[in-house]
Design a protein around this nucleic acid. Structure first.
Lengths: 194, 194
DNA sequence: TGATAACCGGGGCGCTCGTTCCGTATAGTG
DNA sequence: CACTATACGGAACGAGCGCCCCGGTTATCA
């Protein structure tokens, strides 16, 4: 079945739907009603379903671009001369995205095969930073993902005003310092590792 | 309106509903259908509404005990001889609760007037630890709440198996170390970057 | 034990939201 | 300009869920 070219108006509407969905999801998360997305796009709900078989497919389409961007960023940073800076820069970038995009946790959770690519890229970034001695050795990708997810949720907890940019930066500072190698002297937290 | 004593069976059913609600909320979060709570309790939905005017009231009733317990713990720790240990011990306790209780974030978010008490107790705990030099000075109660919430969400991300107790401990270690005062040498932790 | 008031169960209402269907409008074509 | 495939819009359907109501049941007390 050769995908025959879309009609001009159909193509236009598809773009409008994608744009509206991106904004709506970012604003209200995955739970935003599909009718509202349609309304924002200036089309009927039926039109949305002509282009996407289900709501989740639409979300996937919206989120894929963002995740791919994240993956690309992670891969680019993976070759930086300063692995520690690259790693923590990526962390700060994720935190920054979380401030405006309310759907980032869902995006990370749902994104199907891209999830593996993202995790793999993160893994490289993490290992290189650890080998350079910039990140503590007792955290793996699992822990990192959990920390990212928690950080994102914690950041977007309060109102979306300008005041919580400062809050975001302090949270990033705490997690950043916590990810650094522990001081040689005190082994209070770092118990035996497996 | 003197609350006249409840009939024996009513009292029994009220307890059954509370127990079922506690389990159901802990297992599936606030979104668990009220019908399922009623079914677990072995009563009809109507019976639930005889005792609680709305679902949220039931949730409040369930959560109040837990929050009050947390507040009591925080207050007790506030007078400990080791403010730092008390603070981080409380943090570990919250993390531990998060492992089993899926509704902790909602609990913290919803609990009405108790929220203020909890925040106040947390504030005391935090300030004392900061004055003792055990916790960095640039975090406030706001940041702490956000970190707690994020930590809880991050911890309960994966499957509820036994394997993620290790994951939980590592996350707690990261946040704990991140909350410690920064090393004297490098003060600028999370500056702005590209 | 019988009268009375409190209580129980579950069927049902109203609302939200994802999804589908069909009559109508329009882009593309000879 | 007419004709057809394609797309549009929105009304309608069905499922899930919070909440309410009423006929039947049960505890309590004289």
């Amino acid at each position: 079945m050769p995908d025959r070219p879309l009609r001009a108006d159909a193509r236009r509407n598809r773009e409008k739907v994608l744009r509206a969905a991106r904004d709506a999801f970012a604003e209200s998360g995955y739970d935003v009603p599909l009718d509202e997305i349609a309304a924002r796009a200036g089309v009927g709900p039926g039109t949305v379903y002509r282009h996407f078989p289900a709501k989740e497919a639409l979300f996937q389409a919206v989120v894929t671009a963002r995740i791919e961007d994240l993956i690309g960023d992670a891969r680019a940073r993976a070759t930086a001369v300063d692995p520690g800076g690259a790693f923590f820069g990526f962390l700060a970038r994720v935190a920054q995205e979380a401030t405006a995009k309310r759907d980032l946790p869902d995006a990370i959770a749902i994104a199907g095969s891209l999830q593996d690519s993202l995790y793999a890229a993160l893994d490289v970034l993490l290992r290189r930073a650890q080998e350079a001695g910039a990140v503590r050795a007792d955290v793996g990708t699992r822990e990192l993902i959990a920390l990212f997810k928690g950080m994102v949720v914690g950041i977007r907890g309060g109102p979306a005003g300008a005041a919580n940019e400062a809050l975001r930066d302090r949270i990033v500072a705490v997690i950043t310092d916590g990810l650094r190698p522990p001081r040689a002297a005190d082994a209070g937290t770092a118990a035996s590792n497996s």
